[in-house]
């Protein structure tokens, strides 16, 4: 709609109406285009739900609880029990969280409340770098730097040297640190200054203020960070696979362990038939877990936002 075109149009009221009508049609069309773009995210989620569920269901229908609670995974003998892997995943994630949560929150306190702006900007760059390291690179680092260090403990305990649940847990702890740090930092920064001022004015020391006022006030954000960290840890496949040893046995800290996610890339290439269906089934189990976690995070976030108002 250039100005000359507008002038031409102005000569005849008739064509203005026409133009307005075509303009409205364009507006309506663009509205639809943008709506479709937005809904494509919803459609993607729906497609993922449907395809993961449809492909994962047959094995569960065939094996029922033997799939979820069976203790032996032996595709050669058509035994598909994923309990050892679920246990290993839960154990590794929990162990990683025990280390990463306190250290992540403390680091976030330093970034948000203690360090001068310039220092925290530099540290934040490091945290971003940590989250930018690809998971295969973590796996490589873990296999070279962490696994051999555990050999000594294993030999002291009389166990064969190799990948272990402990190595996987350490790997995961490092990998989820950036998530926990950045989400917690945002939450800590959002705590109203008045809360801290009031706490200090009542005679709290700075340390008491941090632990008794700031961190409790940021609780919902920190919990969300924890849940996101759990999601990342539970879904990580490549890095843990490269350090965990991957024997599908009931987990023990110093023995090799097969995490749920790792089974898929390990056995994918040579699986077919029921075996492949079992891998799809693992995908479904993982998907249900992640969705439950997502919904929990959303609840927590909404509650947190409600409290802030």
């Amino acid at each position: 709609m250039t100005s000359s075109a507008a002038a031409d149009a102005a000569k005849e009221g008739f064509s203005i109406r026409q133009r307005r009508r075509s303009g409205q049609a364009l507006e309506g069309a663009m509205h639809c285009v943008f709506l479709v773009c937005g809904l494509s995210a919803v459609a993607s989620v729906a497609f993922i739900c449907i395809h993961v569920a449809v492909s994962g269901w047959p094995i569960i229908a065939k094996y029922g609880l033997d799939f979820l609670l069976g203790q032996s995974w032996n595709p050669g003998n058509s035994q598909f029990g994923v309990l050892p892997m679920i246990t290993a995943s839960v154990a590794a994630t929990a162990a990683a969280m025990v280390v990463a949560l306190p250290s992540g929150v403390l680091a976030a306190v330093f970034l948000a409340k203690i360090a001068p702006d310039r220092v925290s900007a530099v540290l934040r760059t490091f945290v971003d770098l940590l989250s930018g390291i690809p998971s295969v690179v973590y796996g490589l680092l873990g296999a070279i730097l962490i696994v051999p260090k555990i050999f000594k403990i294993q030999s002291a305990a009389g166990l064969p040297a190799g990948g272990s649940l402990l190595a996987a847990a350490i790997m995961l702890a490092i990998m989820i640190l950036p998530t926990i740090i950045s989400v917690s930092e945002t939450a800590l920064r959002a705590v109203p200054k008045q809360y801290e001022d009031a706490s200090l004015a009542l005679g709290a020391t700075k340390l008491q203020c941090v632990f008794k006022t700031t961190i409790p006030a940021a609780k919902s954000g920190i919990t969300a960070g924890m849940a996101l960290g759990i999601g990342r840890a539970a879904g990580e496949a490549m890095a843990v696979m490269m350090v965990a040893g991957n024997a599908a046995i009931m987990p023990s800290l110093l023995k090799p362990a097969r995490l749920l996610t790792a089974s898929i890339p390990i056995e994918w290439a040579y699986s077919s038939g029921v075996h492949r269906e079992a891998l799809y089934g693992i995908g479904l189990v993982l998907f249900v877990f992640i969705m439950a976690l997502n919904i929990t995070v959303r609840r927590i976030m909404k509650k947190g936002a409600g409290q802030g108002e």
Binding site: I48, G231, G235, A237
Partner: peptide, 28 residues
């Protein structure tokens, strides 16, 4: 409600682990 659905979908997409994207991408 539409906006909420889209935002929730985006959150879900960013939380899905890459191995699951692999399974979905393969099947679909």
């Amino acid at each position: 409600r539409v906006a909420d659905a889209i935002e929730f979908a985006a959150e879900v997409l960013s939380g899905i682990p890459s191995i699951l994207y692999g399974v979905f991408g393969y099947v679909f």
